[in-house]
């Protein structure tokens, strides 16, 4: 391969590093972790520049997409976590709603109306889908334009609403009987699942930050 003419990429490197830093400063990276990565990246870009390679050749045309991909790579999406948060929210919602219906004047005793179950499912799905969509968008940000991501988000939201509307229509008029001890068990189970999910997430975050081994 012929040696490539060397030119100074100093200003270009500064711009790229600044854009990446701006993106990472909004993520949950610690300052130390962020600076460590930026230092490593700057050294890499400077050594590449000394060999005649531009920052674009190293990072690609969109440095923010590179930053997003690297950020997303350190926390692979956890389906187990999504299922836990969905089930936890669902059990908590149904249990709490069953208890509320016992005390409010318009309640129907032990009976939890079917359409109100949809609300619990909606909250659970919304948490699960939102988390999944957020992580997927971060990981594949470089493959979508801002506009197509917005269109995708709106279409996804509409589909979700449509699905929930359908389930609501089907469950309307039905209901399940949830005696108060069962409601308490549901709340405890839901809270335990949610707490377990939060604990796992915190431990994973601490590991990523090097707080634990």
């Amino acid at each position: 391969m012929e040696p490539r003419p060397r030119r100074s990429y100093g200003a270009e490197i500064d711009v790229q590093i600044e854009r990446i830093d701006r993106y990472w400063s909004k993520r949950d990276l610690t300052t130390a972790e962020r600076y460590e990565r930026l230092d490593e990246l700057r050294e890499h870009l400077e050594r590449a520049a000394a060999e005649g390679r531009s920052p674009e050749e190293v990072l690609g045309p969109d440095p923010v997409a590179f930053a997003a991909e690297w950020d997303a790579a350190r926390r692979p999406y956890s389906w187990a976590g999504a299922v836990m948060i969905f089930l936890g929210t669902l059990l908590l919602s149904v249990g709490a709603y069953a208890l509320i219906l016992r005390v409010v004047p318009w309640g129907e005793g032990d009976r939890v109306p079917g359409d109100s179950l949809v609300v619990g499912v909606a909250v659970g799905v919304a948490f699960g889908v939102f988390g999944a969509a957020q992580d997927a968008f971060r990981a594949y940000r470089h493959r979508f334009s801002r506009r197509s991501a917005r269109v995708g988000a709106v279409l996804g939201g509409l589909l979700l609403l449509l699905g929930l509307g359908l389930v609501w229509t089907l469950l309307r008029g039905t209901g399940i009987s949830v005696p108060w001890p069962a409601a308490v068990v549901l709340i405890v189970l839901g809270a335990a699942l949610t707490a377990l999910h939060v604990r796992w997430s915190n431990r994973a975050r601490a590991r990523r930050r090097g707080v634990t081994s």
């Binding site: 990246l41 890499h44 590449a48 390679r53 050749e57 190293v58 990072l59 690609g60 590179f66 991909e69 690297w70 997303a72 790579a73 350190r74 926390r75 692979p76 990523r208």
Partner: peptide
């Protein structure tokens, strides 16, 4: 070069 960093992070995760 830039594709290496996300990949090693993924392998680390």
């Amino acid at each position: 070069d830039g594709s290496i960093y996300p990949l090693v992070s993924r392998l680390e995760a």
